[in-house]
Design a protein around this nucleic acid. Structure first.
Length: 529
RNA sequence: GCCCCCGUAGCUCAAUGGACAGAGCAAUACCCUUCUAAGGUAAAGAUGGGGGUUCGAUUCCUCCCGGGGGCACCA
């Protein structure tokens, strides 16, 4: 299925080329043609300011040039009207006939509607959460969790072959600290009831061993159940320990050395990350012989690329921001491309409860775990709440509002629309499998709903390109709203059998897309509410 | 000191460099003998401040003012 914006883009490009051939337009390299989805209905459904960008190639005013372009474009069946406005915008009004055809496609493709081939089946690895197995998942982990999961869903829909991966830091300093904490000795850092509980099960005297045991229990009994509760399924749980056991860490370090990217200083082995864009060089092997977390991370990076992934998407907490530069440096040093690593940095989630900020820290034992949040507000609300916000802004989560007003949460607005559509189908007792009499749909609210339905593919494309997940929740809300307006203005079940069938056909398309959007977000689509 | 993120309506958040800056919650006035009122309609309400680039800036650059986070032989 072609994306409407792309279709318009190609059309414009073709017309410009034609005008150049006929020497009506001068020769110039055609810039990227940007199609805007108009916010104001008076400005058409879509618009472009491409002529304004071409200004320097024309002696006459932009508006005059735009008119020439417009006259050619107006011949297309896609539009019912094309007009020039303002300084030289070209506004497009999508024709009902075109919309009817698109709705036909939706009914034909059903749940496959929205699938595009942007990814061309390329393998992408999405690594997210990857929280240390030292305690329950926090709201920050939740943000990354939902974000990673939904991005993976969208990328799949956009034609990528996606693998979801969780990296388990099951060795090293954090595990040792966990061991101390469980033992309750002077070097303990983590506190909380779960540590006290672990103390009863994990006995021993060596911190590393106790920590490993405790980490395993936390992973299996706390983290994995939480993730299941969050509605996330990982394709792979990757253990850091295996990188050491297989000798991959040593191999990675060797390779960096072979390529001339390491040096020794003060008894430690350093990686020359500074010449590759990092702030400073980084230690791979400490003076005491212990390899750093960064060393195993490089091995992990290498491992991922060697498994055939063309792109690595990594979700990082804001506190790991500084890590991006060195990861990219390492990937370059190993002969991979920096651009193939895409780091998504999550800004912090702050929690407010009873009007006050709750400082979240595993170390002090004061935090609200993801589990508690889901128990309090439900998975659908939790997901929507997180997904509405851009990942790179600070996010204040107000527990009081989430709890109190949960029945007014926008997610219900979307689900309610879905439930209502179902209700209408139930009442109508008419089964629609093929589109019928679509040409009868010409009310403004009907046309608007159709336009909204068709935008789904654009949303998929946009997100697959810029990873701005909040587009999806916004879209779902807009689609729901279009449905409500249709619902208010157009009665579906009437004496007019043909019109009833036409409107049911439209509703079926709306249902398919609404369900598709909710599914991408991992939110349920209830038959009734 | 250096680096990153943020500052938009009373609150929480949107807005691939485009036209009149959108939602939800809160507040105002209407609409249930009508396919589910968790809905609709009407009105009200915002880009921290100064420069700059541009035909056009919430968006890009710069300075300032606020808030947050990084700058380990920790992970």
């Amino acid at each position: 299925m072609e994306i409407m914006k792309e279709e318009i883009k190609e059309l414009i490009r073709g017309v410009i080329v034609g005008l150049q051939k006929n020497r009506i337009f001068p020769e110039f390299e055609i810039p990227e043609i940007v199609i805007d989805c108009s916010t104001n209905k008076n400005n058409g459904d879509y618009s472009t300011g491409v002529v304004l960008k071409l200004g320097r190639y024309f002696s006459q005013e932009a508006a005059v040039t735009a008119i020439t372009l417009k006259n050619r474009l107006a011949k297309s069946e896609i539009f019912s009207k094309v007009e020039v406005a303002g300084p030289g915008f070209i506004n497009f009004f999508i024709s009902p006939k075109y919309l009817h055809n698109k709705i036909k496609e939706v009914l034909k493709q059903k749940e496959k509607f929205g699938v595009i081939n942007l990814g061309n089946n390329r393998k992408v690895n999405v690594e997210f959460i990857s929280a240390n197995p030292t305690g329950p998942l926090t709201l920050g982990n939740g943000r990354g969790g939902f974000g990673g999961d939904v991005l993976a869903n969208v990328l799949e829909k956009a034609g990528y072959k996606v693998s979801r991966e969780y990296y388990i830091n099951d060795t090293g300093a954090q595990i040792k600290k966990l061991g101390h904490s469980v033992l309750g000795d002077a070097e303990a850092v983590y506190k909380g009831k779960y540590i006290d509980d672990l103390r009863k099960i994990c006995t021993g005297i060596v911190p590393e061993q106790v920590g490993k045991k405790a980490g395993k229990i936390i992973l299996e009994k706390t983290i994995k159940p939480s993730i299941k509760k969050m509605g996330i399924k990982f394709d792979k749980w990757f253990s850091e320990t295996t990188l050491y056991k297989s000798g991959e860490v040593d191999k990675a370090i060797e390779e960096l050395t072979k390529r001339g990217f390491t040096y020794e200083s003060e008894g430690a082995l350093w990686f020359k990350s500074m010449i590759l864009g990092d702030d400073k060089d980084r230690v791979l092997i400490r003076a005491d012989g212990i390899k750093t977390y960064f060393a195993s991370d490089i091995a992990y990076l290498k491992n991922k690329f060697e498994r055939g992934f063309e792109k690595l998407i990594i979700f990082l907490g804001a506190d790991h921001y500084g890590y991006v530069a060195r990861l990219k440096a390492a990937s370059y040093a190993l002969g991979f491309k920096k651009e193939d690593i895409e780091a998504i940095v999550l800004q912090l989630v702050k929690l407010f409860e009873n009007g006050k900020e709750v400082r979240m820290s595993k170390r002090t034992g004061t935090y609200v775990a993801m589990d508690e949040l889901i128990d309090a507000v439900g998975l659908d609300v939790a997901r929507f709440f997180f997904l509405q916000r851009s990942l790179n802004t600070h996010f204040n989560f107000d527990m009081d509002i989430a709890k109190e007003k949960s029945d007014k949460n926008p997610v219900f607005k979307v689900q309610y629309a879905y439930a209502r559509i179902n209700s209408i189908f139930k009442k109508s007792k008419i089964k629609i499998s093929k589109p019928k009499n679509l040409e009868l749909l010409k009310e403004p609210s009907e046309l608007e709903l159709m336009k909204q339905i068709i935008r789904f593919t654009e949303i998929i494309e946009d997100i697959a390109e810029d990873y701005q997940l909040q587009r999806l929740s916004n879209y779902a809300l807009e689609l729901a709203e279009s449905f409500y307006k249709f619902y208010e203005n157009c009665k579906v079940i009437t004496e007019d059998k043909k019109l009833t069938e036409a409107r049911l056909s439209l509703l079926l398309a709306a249902k398919i897309v609404l369900e598709g959007a909710l599914k991408l977000m991992g939110i349920s689509a209830p038959e009734k509410m």
